[in-house]
Amino acid sequence: MTVISVLPGDGVGQEVVPEALRVLDDLGLGLEFDVLDHVNAGAYLATGTALSDDDVDRIRRSDAALFGAIGDPRVTSPDYARGVLLRLRFELDLYVNHRPVSLPAERLSPLKDAKRGAIDCVVVRENSEGLYAGIGGALRQATSHEVALDVEVNTHSGVSRILDYAFGIARSEVCMVDKSNAVPNGGRLWQRCWADARRRHPAMVTRHLYVDAAAMRLVSDPAGFDVIVTNNSYGDILSDLAAELGGGIGIATSVNLNPSTGFGLYEPVHGSAPDLAGRGVANPVAAILCAALMLGDLGHTAEAEAVRAAVARTVEAGRCTPDLGGSLGTAQAGAAIRAELG
């Protein structure tokens, strides 16, 4: 039995994840869902616990996790989000953030050019180090003499393994992005590991860009990339830019992955969107595409492709939510995809 941990979380996560589960149910694959619907902002405000040790153990024992969103206007401390997402990333060593970008309908991209080919790439982001490792501190806080430090952490093993992952999934090219001309210490480490990785994969076409040049190139030629690999903070920025070029944040997917264990935490990128929550208008496509990404990684390749194709057909036909040019609500959009799949 394949067990999927399900964490709807907050805001629109509680609306879009059920649509993804209905799609998975319709496929009849015999998946078992372990729903942790108590992991949310309300529970955190009541108990002070974001994610318990028992919750982590339940998730660890499952085969994969499908996540909705985290975040609530009532919670002002970053400890809540860190206590859920970052705790899972670090404790399960989910060192890959894999963000595929594939345009389902040409009208959705502001920069689609048929002469350049399809927008179809992956941003691979190192997920456990960098500026988000939490190393740093503050001196003389809340005074005019305050000094704040956030330290970027790079390790040889961490950089090497994310580069090898990028080479492992590439179809035609790997583009490594850094800022080694201005960030000398981490930059030198990334450059050495990059040279070593290229020697380990001599048949692959490679390219190196500084992060500012990569941002410009994504805008001028978004179809010109296959796999982009970079550090935690640059990857965070570039993957959101790529998502917007590929149809918008409402259809953007991601997985936090440990390739060694095979465990993945599949998460739509759009967040909890409190301004949309409870209105029944949130776009379920990203959650459903996350489910498809999960299916592919679990070995259900044909079913994953069928879900992606059904999504593309419904979006192309305008049977979708208003952010994609349609007029359907969350449940109606989910039903349209299931009908197309059926």
Score class of each variant (00 low, 15 high):
R192G: 01
V311Y: 05
D275R: 12
P73S: 09
V75C: 08
R87S: 09
V183R: 07
A65L: 14
V269W: 00
V281W: 00
R140H: 13
R61S: 15
S220K: 13
G83S: 08
G130Y: 06
S144V: 11
R198H: 00
L265E: 03
M204Y: 04
V255I: 07
F67D: 10
Y95K: 04
D10V: 13
E19V: 12
M204K: 05
L276K: 04
S5I: 01
D79S: 14
L298M: 08
S220M: 07
L328Y: 13
L88I: 15
G278Y: 07
S128T: 13
V35D: 03
V219L: 12
D37K: 11
G117L: 05
V281I: 15
G246T: 02
D57Q: 15
R338H: 07
Y165W: 10
R107Q: 15
A310I: 09
I251A: 02
V159Y: 00
A118T: 12
D240W: 09
S327M: 09
D72Q: 13
A182Q: 05
T143Y: 04
L24W: 02
L298W: 08
D54G: 15
E303N: 07
G68M: 11
L265N: 06
G137V: 11
D196L: 02
Y95N: 09
G158H: 02
G342F: 00
Y165L: 08
A138F: 00
P268V: 14
R140W: 12
P268D: 11
Y132C: 09
A170I: 03
K179F: 01
L289V: 11
D53C: 08
P100H: 08
L293A: 05
G187P: 03
D113E: 04
